[in-house]
Design a protein around this nucleic acid. Structure first.
Lengths: 338, 338
DNA sequence: CTGAAAGCGCTAACAC
DNA sequence: GTGTTAGCGCTTTCAG
């Protein structure tokens, strides 16, 4: 088992010092071309591979940034991750992923782990459970960039990238209204996450603007999942004031709603259904699901841009809060049949 | 900006030496309880956070393992990742993700990056493009565990976790035959990836076993995607020997096939369709897609187990090649209508 | 343009 | 049970 070759080996080989090798390798300008050539040639010949750990320990920069998401299994987050990577590619920064699985405990552990790994910054989208965010304060204290996306928290005064969720909720509701639905219900999470509250506010605002009554019994607070969607829909259709359309706070929940409605032969768009996120399956189910696109690729790209600009401009300028415009994806589940 | 506290600060605080602190912190047995208590208390008070980099540099172990997958956007890989994490959780190992995006160049870069980051091992599933695998040899040369899963390569003599893909292909074909289909076509990738070849072999074997003719024109080699599925199906239905069932090498491709068939009003199961992977959407499309479940959770769990046992038992014992049993998920797309 | 040398924060012999 | 000390591999002053 051959010891790994280090810059010392290269130095010895060429009868120069490590500093020269280090400089040559890292593109330091004041190095003769001859030396540089020789160093690169020797590095290659000796099969040298830099130890980034040592470099990071000394320089204080790992060029790794930690990304915390609830789960990569949601297409929405998978897409964001993908475009964060894409946006970081040319900068030399890499990401290391941490999944909170919607648990605060796990999220706290994630922050700790990433910090111990000396990441140069953290991007996070909060778990559903997260209410207290003090565990993120250590990141700020260590003077490392922290960027929140999608699921953010007002207590944390950091750069954010979010959807205009109020507008998203308004848009979904407005679309249903314009399609002729009059008694629109809403299935959402009971967790106090801002984006979901904002969507709900948008819903209420749209009802008000169109002079439609708001019936609090029409709002079901539970979880977000296929199962919860079925459950919520079941509850709604049994109510005395049965709705003619249902908004679900995400596409998984909307899918559950649809499944339930099909079972009772009120297949959408007979009862209208709309979701949020434009998940991978949403276009392919039957009826295809109308939804609000949250533009994850744009979000990821903005996160990357935000990080790079934060890392460069030391002078703590104003904190940017980037807001992405939602857009409506109109499909069968809200297409009034006539 | 307060300098980060190190074990030196704790040592000074308590008038002991760093070695004592280091030992106390890492649970070294021969330390008095009093000292240990004091150290932990001081660590907490001073808001100490260990620098894993320094520790790793010294000890040679980062407790990070690199995972290379084609893309997290496929539910199949997302699930594997999830259960690798799950299986590693109690061991202290963390993973860092690298996506090859089905490109060899990117995969080569991934290996390099991970190695430079001094990961303690690598788990990988090859990109579709990968034919030459010499870039992985460096991992072996560095004496670090390399585990291949799902998309493996015979040139690499390393532990693997795979599906019994021959059986999977056989199973899919057999199912169609038993459902009464007689002229079964196959849409797959032109890339030379073993698992796809094995599935195809299983297909051929099943045809032979049931005395059904093999028509080479019925095998379409192209890409794997919704688009490729449409294309493949289009080609098949225009052929003189139009098939009554189509096997697609993955669920995305199968989805494309279904879309095409619906357009020409030969909605499955009129023409039977089956895929592989049991993707997130497969149960929810219409008709729901029959598929072969590749048990990603089991695969991920086995990868984790394999890694842990490799890391422990230094004596290079026999290389394990774990094979997972596929299972049939029977849904509407193959349910003969009668 | 290149060399010498001091660490980054932690671990692990080796002493006592 | 605790202290001393020599690095891990690299970067980065400060000299020359």
């Amino acid at each position: 088992m051959n010891k790994k070759t280090t810059i010392y080996d290269i130095a010895k080989e060429l009868n120069v010092t490590v500093s020269t090798v280090s400089r040559a390798l890292s593109g330091f300008p004041a190095i003769s071309d001859a030396t540089r050539q020789a160093v690169f040639e020797a590095a290659k010949r000796l099969n040298y591979s830099p130890n980034k750990l040592a470099s990071a320990l000394k320089s204080g920069r790992t060029y790794i940034i930690g990304v915390i998401v609830p789960s990569v299994q949601a297409h929405f987050f998978a897409s964001i991750i993908h475009s964060i990577e894409e946006g970081l590619k040319d900068s030399g920064y890499r990401i290391i992923l941490y999944q909170s699985n919607e648990s605060v405990a796990s999220e706290i552990n994630g922050v700790k782990t990433l910090l111990e790994a000396q990441v140069d910054g953290i991007m996070a989208s909060l778990s559903l459970e997260t209410e207290d965010v003090t565990h993120f304060e250590e990141v700020i204290k260590q003077n490392k960039p922290l960027i929140l996306f999608d699921r953010v928290h007002e207590k944390l005064k950091v750069p954010t990238v979010t959807l205009d969720d109020f507008k998203a909720g308004y848009m979904a509701t407005q679309h249903l209204i314009e399609q002729g639905y009059k008694n629109i219900a809403y299935v959402t999470t009971s967790h106090q996450i801002r984006i979901f509250n904002d969507r709900l506010k948008g819903y209420k605002a749209a009802l008000a603007d169109y002079n439609l009554p708001l019936n609090e019994d029409n709002i079901i607070f539970g979880g977000l999942s296929i199962k919860d969607g079925r459950f919520g829909a079941g509850k709604l259709i049994r109510s005395k004031n049965k709705p003619d359309a249902i908004i679900a706070a995400d596409d998984f929940t909307a899918l559950g709603v649809i499944k339930k409605l099909k079972e009772i032969n009120e297949t959408p768009p007979q009862i209208g259904v709309i979701g949020f996120a434009n998940e991978a399956f949403s276009a392919y189910i039957t009826p295809s699901l109308s939804t609000i696109d949250q533009h994850p690729n744009q979000m990821g790209a903005e996160c990357a841009k935000l990080f790079l600009s934060t890392i460069q401009n030391k002078p703590s300028q104003k904190i940017s809060n980037i807001v992405i415009e939602p857009s409506l994806v109109d499909r069968q589940s809200t297409g009034i049949t006539e």
